[in-house]
Amino acid sequence: MRKNIKALAAGTALVGLLGVSGCSLWAPSRPKPAELGPNVPVLGVRQAWTARVGAVEDVSLDVHVNGNTVTLASANGEVAAIDARTGGDIWRAQLNVPLGSGVGSDGRWTAVVSRGAQVIVMDGGREIWRKSLPAQAYTAPLVAGNRVFVLAADRSVSAFDAATGYKLWSQQRPGEPLVLRQGGVLMAVGDTLVAGLSGRLVGFNPDNGTVRWEAPLASPRGTNDVERLVEIVGRTSRVDDSVCARAFQATVGCIDAARGTVLWTQQASGGEGIHGDAAMLFGTESNGTVVAWRRADGSRAWTSDRLRFRKLTAPLLLGRSVVIGDDTGLVHLLSREDAAPLNRLTTDGSAIAAAPVAAGDTLVVVTRKGGVYGFRPD
């Protein structure tokens, strides 16, 4: 595990934090997954198109959707906006630096973070500025209100003017000395900027960075830094002011983001985010179990061991299906009612690199090799 623990560097200055890869906390081997059996497509889905970007290994990738545009990035600095209706490029840019996280976009401004801890912003595929950060960032920037917000690994939150790169404000919150090398939570809820810091969701005034509220989903426990590691991981499920999220290997829970109060938490042992709607939440646990919780109180509706011992992505709730990728390049469509298999889709055999997304009527998944696949109902 220690070979996966790295010191974070901001430019040439060493930051006094350690970054821990989420996979480094897993055992070095796991039991062999059960055979899936033949695919019986209850729900008809066809591959509509394929596209490519560079390999996305070692990028904390968040595939961004704005209308019918899907924006994503590769490890070697390639950023592409793809039309989900056709799979064709809207624009494509090469930044010529290795990337650590991305993508954030509002449809015009697009932001990524380099492994050298620089936030890089483009306007319609044309780079317009770069600014150094105090530490690496593993969470995709948030672009909203003509501003770019960045959550860095030293638990600082910074705001920049999207057009000029001028730093508007920066706030840093104390926390445990270890951070997770995995995408966290940075989102807008009404007029509040919500960030995941350690085991808390924190609401900021986006205009000046002052803290409006803090809502703890989990607290550090244990006798050493690794055992005490607790982070909020993406993705999340938002319905109006209700925001539900996962604390890494600790809990799932929901908060009222208007008041900053915790509605409920339940113990859970997963490392990927959750998704859902006004009635249900869905998540994948560390052993490959898929779980459904009732949003109202967090009680379990069902669990499924069908994908046990597979390394699974965070889910996407899409109509009647819970869509989940695995580390063999398969995409599983399960019934939201009882996890019954509805279909199974194939890609290029490399791991699905990020949680699946929906753009219009197209399901989009990205593989570690840089394959981008668009699927549609028959």
Rank of each mutant, 00 (worst) to 15 (best):
A188D: 11
A111G: 07
R147A: 10
A140H: 05
R200Q: 13
M122R: 12
R126Q: 15
G199V: 07
S219H: 03
L168Y: 03
M122G: 10
D154Y: 01
E127W: 01
D161C: 09
F204K: 09
T223E: 15
D225Q: 12
A195K: 08
D154P: 00
A188Q: 09
N224R: 14
P141F: 03
V157M: 14
P177R: 11
G199L: 11
V179Y: 14
Q136G: 11
Q118I: 00
G116T: 11
V189N: 10
D207I: 09
G203E: 01
G196E: 04
A140C: 08
M122D: 13
I128Q: 15
S198Y: 05
L197D: 01
T164K: 11
A140G: 04
N146F: 02
E214A: 15
V211L: 10
L193A: 09
P216D: 07
V157E: 08
A218G: 12
N208A: 02
M122A: 13
A135N: 08
V179D: 12
P220K: 13
L168K: 06
G190L: 14
I120Q: 04
A218Y: 11
A135T: 01
V121A: 13
D191V: 14
T110R: 05
V211F: 03
A159R: 01
V157A: 11
D225M: 11
G116N: 12
R155C: 00
G107M: 02
G116M: 06
G183T: 10
A140M: 06
R108H: 14
M187P: 00
F149A: 04
L133P: 06
I128A: 12
T210I: 13
V121H: 11
L168C: 03
A144T: 12
A159Q: 01
V185P: 05
